[in-house]
Structures are given as C-alpha cells and as structure tokens.
Computed example of a mutant assay.
Amino acid sequence: MPNFDDCTSSSASNSNDWPSWLTDLAPTVAEPWFAAIQAAVLPGLGDGPTNRELVELLEGDSAKSFTPLQRSGLWLLAGDLDRSHSISQNEKSPEGSFWHGIMHRREGDFGNAKYWFHRVGRHSILSDLSGRYPELHSDADEFVDRVAHAVRTGEQVEACQQVQWTEWQWLMNVS
C-alpha cells in the first residue's frame, strides 16, 4: 500500500499532507483519488498489477481535472502501460519523456527506456533521486540497469519499487 511520505522533491514542494497535484482540486474530487492510491498495491517493476479502482476513476469525469501527463502517470499506477504510453509519447516536454521512459522501463524495454531518459536531460527529479537513494539511483541509466537486474533475479525488487514510487510522486507534482 503506497503512502504519500515522499511526495515532494526540490522541484515541487508544499506543506500539506496531500501531494500538490491534488491540493488544487475540490475535496470531493481529490478524496476518491487519494483513497484509491493509498488502497493500491505498490506498483510492480513490470507490467501491472491492474488497479480496477483507479481504472474506473480514470474512465470517469474527474480524470479531466488532471493534466495529460498526470493522467499518463495515473495510468501507469493503474497498471495500464498502453494507455500511459499513448499519452506520454505525444508530449515533447522533459516530463513527457520522463513518463515515457518509466513506461518503457516497466514494460521491460530497457534500451528504449534509456533513450527516453536521455531525452529528459538534466532534471531536478533525477538529481533528487540520486541524493535520496545514492546506493540505488546514481543516474537514470544505472537505475534502469538495476531494475532490469531486479526483474531478472528477484533481488532488490522492493527497494527498486520504493525508488520508483518516489519517482512517480515527484513527477506527478511537476507534470
């Protein structure tokens, strides 16, 4: 079950308990999203697991409250890599490339993930992740390799999932 304990990086901070991407929404809109995310299983390093509650929210009207890139991230969290990809591949920003790279990393296309992370360039989230998890995320390429190793061997899966969860939260705040 993910917790919003890592919801801010140097590129996006707030003093609320909710992440900034939810704080601007009406409570009646934000609360179901917050509850569904907290009830979810921590996302895997690969495809899935599918989160039916998030899928239903994403198919509803309240999903229009989010930017396209936030919806891309929410589709990743819901376990639907194809829907995430259809959004992120059309966004030319560093954040669009970031979501695109995460999606390819999760689908196991590690070389393509590295390509998209190179297109991100020097992003504060990448340096913040390296500062927070120096033993796991020295840079985006190294983390892609670490995830590939974790998927192949089953070693450090939970640690990589935690880095990925922090990455997701921070990227949602700036998307």
Results as ranks from 00 to 15, higher is better:
113 A>F: 01
141 D>Y: 01
138 S>A: 10
150 A>I: 13
151 V>W: 01
141 D>V: 04
108 G>T: 06
76 L>M: 13
75 W>N: 05
96 G>V: 07
74 L>D: 03
132 R>F: 10
140 A>V: 04
149 H>I: 07
35 A>W: 01
82 D>Y: 09
129 L>W: 11
104 H>D: 11
106 R>V: 05
64 K>N: 15
112 N>D: 13
61 D>S: 15
121 G>S: 09
107 E>R: 02
68 P>V: 12
71 R>D: 05
49 P>N: 03
46 G>N: 08
102 I>S: 03
36 A>F: 04
101 G>V: 03
106 R>M: 14
68 P>W: 13
152 R>Q: 15
62 S>E: 12
141 D>H: 12
22 L>M: 13
45 L>I: 06
117 F>H: 08
79 G>W: 09
139 D>Y: 07
23 T>S: 15
51 N>F: 11
73 G>I: 05
112 N>L: 03
124 S>F: 00
39 A>H: 06
78 A>F: 14
88 S>K: 04
154 G>Q: 05
87 I>L: 09
75 W>V: 04
70 Q>V: 10
137 H>K: 00
122 R>G: 07
73 G>K: 07
125 I>N: 05
91 E>V: 13
143 F>K: 06
102 I>D: 02
75 W>C: 11
44 G>V: 06
141 D>K: 14
102 I>Q: 05
23 T>C: 14
141 D>N: 08
52 R>P: 13
150 A>T: 01
52 R>V: 15
145 D>L: 08
60 G>H: 04
49 P>E: 12
47 D>L: 09
68 P>T: 04
106 R>F: 09
150 A>H: 05
112 N>V: 15
35 A>S: 11
89 Q>V: 09
136 L>A: 12
89 Q>Y: 13
134 P>N: 11
154 G>E: 01
94 P>K: 01
29 V>A: 12
60 G>N: 07
53 E>Y: 08
88 S>V: 10
67 T>H: 08
29 V>K: 07
117 F>T: 00
118 H>P: 00
